[in-house]
Design a protein around this nucleic acid. Sequence first.
DNA 1: TAGTGTTTTAAACGTTTGTTTTACGCTAAC
DNA 2: GTTAGCGTAAAACAAACGTTTAAAACACTA
Lengths: 217, 217
Amino acid sequence: MKKATVERILDAAEFEFGAHGFVETSLRTITSKAGVNLAAVNYHFGSKKGLIQAVADRFFEPLTLGIQKRLQSMDTKQQTKHQVLTNIYTDLMLEALNIAQRNPARLALFARLINSAYTQSQGHLRKHLTYQYAPLFILLMKTMREHMPEMSHEQFFWRFHHLMGMMVFTLSNSESLGAICAAEYDTQRELPEILQQLIPILVAAAEAPVLPIEKLA
Amino acid sequence: MKKATVERILDAAEFEFGAHGFVETSLRTITSKAGVNLAAVNYHFGSKKGLIQAVADRFFEPLTLGIQKRLQSMDTKQQTKHQVLTNIYTDLMLEALNIAQRNPARLALFARLINSAYTQSQGHLRKHLTYQYAPLFILLMKTMREHMPEMSHEQFFWRFHHLMGMMVFTLSNSESLGAICAAEYDTQRELPEILQQLIPILVAAAEAPVLPIEKLA
DNA sequence: TAGTGTTTTAAACGTTTGTTTTACGCTAAC
DNA sequence: GTTAGCGTAAAACAAACGTTTAAAACACTA
């Protein structure tokens, strides 16, 4: 049986957005790859922005459940803070791999979705995501903060986003980086290896000493 | 005296690209803000891609000189590796501030330029930059590698880019993040403070322990 | 079976895009 | 004083874009 129109649009949009970005992917290529009529996007999603948000939702909904379950069932009592942090990031990487599902491009798109949410041109995305998934972010930040060095809320906010930036950049560009690396060092790496290597780096960054705030000059 | 056409185009392009991205900034808005004729871009730069590359070059040329001078005049003998790494990243942040020049948007655009260079849609940028500024990257990677833990070339390649990702993300989104932070915690921070805080985090990530490569699962 | 609400279709709409063309003004060399 | 050559100007180009329209096809209930 042929998949429902909405789903086929989302599949095609996911693929094309991942390959060429939001702005450079037209509704015409999406609908033609999906084998549906051009007007279907505006009919089912209202607009291109609506489609982008729907694509984002399909990533976030299972991810929210997965992360919440992992964090809440985590035993944070009998472990050092370092171990807990390592567990948190291992969980995050496992959830990331779960998104990838033997299709790394899917994960790259997800990362680019988050990245775009911080740019002005896709401001609607940030509003949508913060409105829709605030509990997830709050839970994640709260859990991490409890196992990181003492610092002000503000300092933690920035450090949290520094770490997110490291993940987002790596995941967004894992394909290009992997290709460069393969050409340069002749070793083809898979996503599970790269993410495993990333964990101790994230933990070390999370545990980095806290400096008093001064102006650099 | 009125600035030359080429320069006025570059100024306007820099501003508009930084505010709305490459794809969403039209040559018409650039040329009209620059007060020049629409055809001037294609005449002087050949195409929009040529303009983007020229904008990139205006960032990279002074940056290359600055970083090379800093790295080569650095005393790496009488310091611990940790101190050297701190110095390297302090230098990088100072050069970043030098790009900003009391205009943070300029620095954000520069970061976004680097980020775009890793995406497929702006593949011409990566080719241009790697062809044009390979010596800078090589020098930077070589200097850093000497003061980081022992690891394979491949592992270093990835770690180098993880660190770059942290910087690029932070700089790209420093405006949005600063706005969120100001709204949330009521403390307006300037770029020099944020970059100063970033240094120990980068160093800690650079010095993170090296794990044997395994597949995460 | 008739009728109602939903989905799909083809076509057109009005903009906007990067690029090209052609003509015109200017300056410098011979 | 004429001729190149370079830079600018306005206009037009063809293509692509997101969105809307109105009619046709469908699915389902009464």
